[in-house]
Every structure is written in C-alpha cells, then in structure tokens.
Nucleic acid binder design. Structure first.
Lengths: 351, 351
DNA sequence: GCATACTCTGTGAGCGCTCACAGAAAATCG
DNA sequence: CGATTTTCTGTGAGCGCTCACAGAGTATGC
C-alpha cells in the first residue's frame, strides 16, 4: 500500500523540510487514510482494519512520526505533569541519596511516558497551603508523595480532590492511599541470617527509628532471624539513623558484652559510626567483629572496610510509584493497593 | 475597573468550576479587554496602555491564571524541551555525584522557566547517531552537553544544526560553543595557600587527569601557590581520580620524602586513598600530615577525618548552563561566551 | 430477503494560545 | 487645523491533536 493510492488528501503539506517534524496529517497522507484513523491506531483503539493499521504503522516509520505531546495534552485537557511532593527542606534533596534516587527513578519512568515531573518541596506551613492549591488547580494529573509526616494535611487534601496519588513508604495514617515500599522485616531477617552464617556467636543490633514502621520492622526481622539466640540485652536502641548513634550504640553494646562478635546496624551511617568505636577499641573488622548495615548508601562504599549491607532499590521505588500513578491516571483505578519491592544483599568486606 | 464594564465579551464561559483552570479568556473578560491584549501583557510586549495592563494584572491575580504551557508551545511551534546529553553509560548517573547534581540543577532552572529536561545518554556509536537524528528533528529547542569526549561527533552535529547549546566544562575542540566551568587553577591555588597557612613545610601533590584541562589546571594552581617552595619531586602523577590512585600516590610521596607534612590531592577519592596509606604507615591526620582534596563529594564527608576540600558548585553549573541555553533560545544569541563559577573552600578536619 | 447488529472510516469542532492584520484612538507636526 | 505618525486594541486563523458524530460497508439472524 503506497502513499496516496486511495487518493485521499485532506490537507496539502509541502514535503517536510529537514527541521520540520512530521504530523498526523503527513502520516495519514502517506498511508492513504484520514487522521482519525491514524489517531485510533496511535491510541490503540479497536475498530481499525488490519490493512489500515499496517499501512499506518509503515507510514509512521517512514516519515519518522513522533506524537506532539503539547497538542495531545491540549486536546485531552490534561496537564501531562505529575507532582512529586517532598515534605523536607531543599537541602535534603542533595544530602539524602535515597530521595535523589527516587526522584531520578520517577523522572525516568515519567519521561518515558511523556509526562513531566514537577517537584514540590514543602517546608513551611505556607508551602503546604500553596501546594494544596496547586494540586487542586488542575496543573497536575497525579502525585507521588515521598516523605509524608504524621500530621500531613497534604495526603488528606489529595484524598479530597480525588487526585491519583501514591506514597513511597507505607502510610500509617492514610490506609486508603496506594503505596510502594520495601520489605524491611524480610530484609533484616535475611541479612542477619547471612551474618549468622559467617559463624558469629554473639550477635547484637543497633536499632533506630523505632517510632516508625521501618525501624520497628528492621528490629522485628532481626529478632526473627535470631530465634532462640535472641538476647534483648544485645539490642542498643537509638533515636536516629546517624553516625553519632552508631558511635554511641556500639559503645553500649561493647560495655554490655565485650565478647560480642557480630552487629546488625539499622543503617549504613550507624554501621560507619560503630566502625569508628570498634577501631578505637582496638577491634578488627571483620576479623574480631563482623558488621552489616542497611541502605547501601554512600556510607557503605566509602567506609573502611566497605560495608556488607542491604540495597534499597530507591530508583525502582520512584519508578514503580510513577507507574502506579500513571495506571491510576489512565484507567481511573488501580489493580493493587500496595507493592513491596525486593531488596538485595550486597556482600562486601565488613562481615 | 470591574469585570465586563466595557461590555466586552468574545466568548461566554460558565463560572469556573473548582477544578477547571482559568484561561486567557477568563482573564480578558474579567479585565474587560480582548485576549490579544492579555497575551501582549503576558509576553511583555510594548503597546499596551497602563490602564489595560493594570486591569489585566489584577484580573490574573483574581482568577488565579497560570499560562497553559501545552497551548503555548503548540502555538509557538516550540517543543518546550531542552536536551541534556551525557556521554557515558547509565550507571555513571548514580555513581558520579557531580553529574547527578548538574542534572538536578539544570532541571530546577528549566522547570522554573516551564521547560522540560530530556536526558539523552550516549553509550554506543548507534546511540550517537540516534541522538543526532533526534536533535535535528525539532524535538528539542536546545541542548546542554555534559561530558563530551575529544572525538565527539555530537558537538559538531549541534553546530551544524545551529541548535542553541552550551557545554559544561571548557571544550577543547569546539571553541565556538559557549560553556560554563569552574576555575580549577584558582581553586587549587587557593586551597594550597590555605594548607600552607597551617604551617606545613613539606607539601606535595597527588595529581591526576593530566590529559585534561581540569587536571592540568589543578597542578598549575598548586605550582603557583607553592612559588619558590615548589619541588617537582613531591608531585605524584596518577592517571585517574580514584581511591586506588590515592593509595599509590601517597605511598610514592612517602617514599620520596618521609618528612612530608602536607598533601593536596586532585580529588576527594584520591585524598581518601591517601588517608588509607597514611593510616597504615602510622601517620596521624591532621597532626602529622595535613591533607586537602577537591570536589566536596561524598568521599569528603564520609572520610575519617572529614576532608577539607574545594566545593564544586555542580548544581549551579547545571542551572547556569540551563540559563545560558534559554538565553540563546529566547534571544537567538548569547551575551557571554564562557562563564567561570566560583568555588568555595570547605574546611573540615583533615588539615 | 430484509432488518438488525457490528465494524470501520472520514469530518467538524474545539482544546488555549500566539501571530499577523486591520482598524481606532491619540499624539505630533507643518 | 488637517495630514501623518505613533500608540493601542480586537479578531481570524491556525498550531497538532482528540473526541463525538454520522455514514458506509459487512456480517448475522430470522
């Protein structure tokens, strides 16, 4: 089927100059059909004959057609944008490698679907109101919420607006919102098991963030993996996931049992701090004490020795979240309500 | 001036439902003018009376109007997208903190101007051709080139297409392309001077990347700062900016002069490697040897002790590059041909 | 054989904006 | 004061696409 053999012409276009992109008209002319049919093929609608479909696909390839997103969004009355809402000051973006990776992952998935990512950072109360207004104004087709706080008015606002949305991390207070997260408990159980497998006898944990799901689950996983060998006196409970917490927690564990020979740290930063305490105490890692972390952040690769740890698929977390919003945007509903992404153990030198 | 008091109505719109955004028509009706005049105000064109301008600005504020980018791009026949071209495999994106920060910075600047960033990663020869085709197809209004290689066909292709573009880093082979970079030589001079100021007598350097501008300039800056005290036997020349290079380079320096008490490392990774060698050699940092790095990457903060170093304003580099392309896109030409961004010394514990 | 369904296709209108044009109003000049 | 020039404003057309509608062709049932 060659161009124009049905004699169909709705509009005459001069042969495309080199820097002019092809439109749906060019494809229609080339395939000898109308633009309506081309549009149908483009959108995967039924009721298109096999012959027409083939001719159009060939024409698309031939003229190098790529859909004009601006025109499509205009006609479809959609913004073509998805908001990524981060409830933290700007600086966290750069410091927290996970948030950066989530953003990059979401961005990649959205670009692939011709959607624009709009990052909205909430710091003050005023920001919160501004963002709520923005979300209600039809400027975005959906939202990804990254680090929601307990008292977060945004999640509620989104629910009220019936805006397609998904949370990264399991929401405590908004059970109806779909989410993506990782299996903290399973991952903790796995890496603790692996640590036990290296022949350690006295294994402790430096736990943190016990006011959140993630922290509680990591401790629970540790307890499960230890089974009968679990000894609560070998759990140091810290508030934050920081280097300082690691320094202090390790000192506490060493005081409680000098014979300790294995440690599961609830984060890489904690593990790095523990490493410092052990070095000062004259213990060798991994010879005397084996230590494992969580996150696979830059702490893990920069530490000496490099940390064995659990890799959080942060990029995938973002990508998956993006896919889930897009699914909601397109179909109006969602198949699954929550998704747990697989983690991976990265075994390096610290245990 | 109240809505409609000139009795002007071109089109009747029902009062905006809550989730319907205001259009230029709504503003026009509210201000009692035509949409042409509103458009003129929006685009900062001359020939608008003060009265009309004020009425329109008030109306915009009142109805909460925000321009519909899709419609604008469609009418203006522009894509509203800027390409960011990275000549490296995908993985570098995550590993190299500078590239990530450049991307984030460029993205922020472009979103603020309602432009979409399109990341194009070139790995193979085929990618290179595909990207060239894409750039010529009118799908982007401009390009930012991040890590061009010497034999890069892309820069040439861009020059041929007369596509607005800017390079991050000073281009060796494409002198006509505008660029943004940092003053490697000045920064090296400054931090070396600062290191000298701590009272060190025998200061060496671990240089690297001498086949590039950046590497050569850092060495030149070091030499300048040392003046008469410069001693070429205290310069270890390494190929790459890596941890391993730091380990080896430091060992070499120690062998040449055991009394060495200061080191300028050409990168943070090198400095971290040097730290390792010094630790094994029983030297204390900063008591025995003071050491400074370059980049302010995650190596610098994760190292023990934390590194004194030069901060590369990677985010600003991206943002500035974006602004320069946008300037070209808008005006068709460019004021300055190159821009050097200020670096900053971050003084921590290693010297 | 005809009525009824289903399959397939072309066309008009319109999404929100910009641009070029034409005409009106105001300022300037000889 | 009339003729120019300059300032200002409204309107039609069109950017590339989707959607709804209408109509034509083909299969199915009685």
């Amino acid at each position: 089927m060659r161009g124009g053999d049905r004699g169909y012409t709705e509009r005459v276009t001069t042969p495309a100059t080199r820097h002019k992109r092809a439109t749906i008209f060019d494809v229609a002319a080339e395939a000898g059909v109308s633009r309506g049919t081309v549009s149908r093929v483009l959108n995967g609608e039924p009721y298109v004959s096999a012959a027409a479909r083939e001719a159009i696909e060939a024409a698309i390839a031939k003229v190098g057609y790529v859909r004009n997103t601006a025109a499509r969004n205009l006609a479809k009355q959609s913004s073509g944008a998805i908001a990524l809402i981060v409830h933290e000051p700007d600086s966290v973006f750069i410091d927290d490698p996970n948030i950066g990776a989530i953003l990059l992952g979401a961005n990649a998935a959205l670009s692939a679907a011709d959607y624009q990512l709009v990052s909205l950072i909430i710091d003050t109360e005023r920001d919160s109101r501004r963002v709520t207004g923005y979300l209600g104004g039809g400027f975005v087709d959906g939202a990804i919420i990254v680090s929601a706080r307990e008292d977060d008015p945004i999640s509620q606002a989104i629910a009220d607006l019936r805006l397609p949305a998904v949370m990264v991390g399991r929401p405590d207070n908004q059970p109806q919102l779909p989410w993506v997260g990782i299996d903290n408990r399973g991952a903790a159980r796995q890496i603790t098991g692996r640590l036990r497998g290296t022949g350690r006898r006295r294994i402790g944990m430096i736990a943190a963030g016990l006011d959140r799901d993630s922290g509680r689950d990591r401790l629970a996983g540790f307890r499960e993996a230890m089974g009968d060998a679990f000894d609560d006196s070998l759990v140091a409970r810290e508030r934050f996931y920081t280097y300082a917490a690691g320094v202090a927690g390790m000192a506490a564990l060493l005081a409680r049992d000098p014979a300790i020979d294995g440690v599961f740290a609830a984060s890489d930063a904690i593990a790095a701090g523990a490493l410092e305490t052990l070095r000062n105490a004259g213990r060798r890692v991994p010879a005397d004490v084996g230590i494992v972390g969580f996150d696979d952040s830059s702490w893990a690769v920069r530490a000496q020795p490099a940390l064995s740890t659990v890799r959080q698929p942060a990029g995938q977390l973002g990508a998956r979240a993006a896919e889930l919003v897009l699914e909601q945007v397109r179909t109006g509903s969602l198949a699954a309500n929550g998704a747990l992404l697989a983690t991976e153990i990265v075994w390096r030198d610290s245990a």
